[in-house]
Design a protein around this nucleic acid. Structure first.
Lengths: 157, 157
DNA sequence: GTAAATTATATAAGCAGCTTAAATTTGTAG
DNA sequence: CTACAAATTTAAGCTGCTTATATAATTTAC
């Protein structure tokens, strides 16, 4: 088969897709639940990643950085913004007080589910046009790509 | 099948992959051919896209912007840098002198092929671990995603 | 044939998300 | 208890995009 062609098409598609995915979308966050005020906040893919990661339990800043494949300062920033808008909280690990544990603010788990759901929509739409086999192959491809582009970022799930 | 899980994994994988793909890699450009000096230049995915697009013939700045899914000023910038390093040239369209046509500098087609080849390597590696069907499904997935994320960016090839 | 609107590109200003380097706080080992 | 290591944060800076504005060339209308 003509792999060359597929590789070239991927080289063209990937950056374009990146730009589309990167574009943050405004979402209503925790404030609405706390104050009854609807505030639209720009949420980036990185923020979504944090929200998804936290759905599986609290994480330290360092763990988040590793799961997302970003530097610790970047993780700090992501958490900063989510905390600012009342989605997550920091508290010190009781065992090792250097560690900052991040978790949803009480009651924000549901809000997070909704926010993630919003973000899922275009993906669901795209995947609805694939067969089961194609969807699996697609995700497998993403994993392989992430790995061969240098990240050990395939094992989060 | 459990699509939900696949969608979530994709939401986690995509941004991480983006960060990996985005990282520009230093490449030797046109200068080496002209002056015999090896200069390492930071090449971003966008620059690679331009080089690939030009492999199929000269393009106007506007056409490049459209193919890449970026704004015209962004295309101008990409061309600026490639021109600065002796890879591409601008010349006015003889018919419509508002239009700026971009093309390889004479002899740079080969250099471009090498640069693109460098960039192809991790992709080839990843695709070598897929069956033909999987590779096809993967690219189809990218196309679908690009489309449903809002871009009409699937038709370039 | 010229004034006004449109189109293609470029310039300017600004922002978001990352990076590395340095600072701060806490823990660990001898 | 002193010195080194680790987790996080702060600070500074870069890149690649965006929108708004400017400039030049073309088209349209009359």
């Amino acid at each position: 088969m003509d792999r060359e062609r597929l590789v070239d098409e991927t080289l063209m598609l990937l950056p374009t897709l990146m730009r589309l995915v990167e574009r943050p979308s405004p979402v209503e966050m925790g404030e609405i639940a706390r104050r009854g005020v609807a505030t639209d906040v720009q949420v980036s893919p990185g923020h979504i990643q944090v929200l998804i990661a936290l759905a599986r339990g609290p994480r330290s800043v360092g763990q988040l950085a590793e799961e997302l494949g970003v530097s610790p300062p970047a993780a700090t920033q992501l958490v900063d913004k989510l905390a600012e808008h009342g989605m997550v909280d920091r508290h010190n690990d009781l065992v090792d007080r250097r560690v900052v544990l991040v978790d949803y603010v009480a009651g924000m788990r549901e809000v997070a589910r909704r926010i993630i759901g919003d973000r899922r929509r275009p993906l669901n739409e795209a995947m609805s046009k694939m067969t089961d086999g194609e969807a699996l192959a697609f995700v497998k491809g993403l994993r392989l790509l992430a790995k061969s582009f240098g990240g050990a970022a395939g094992e989060q799930i």
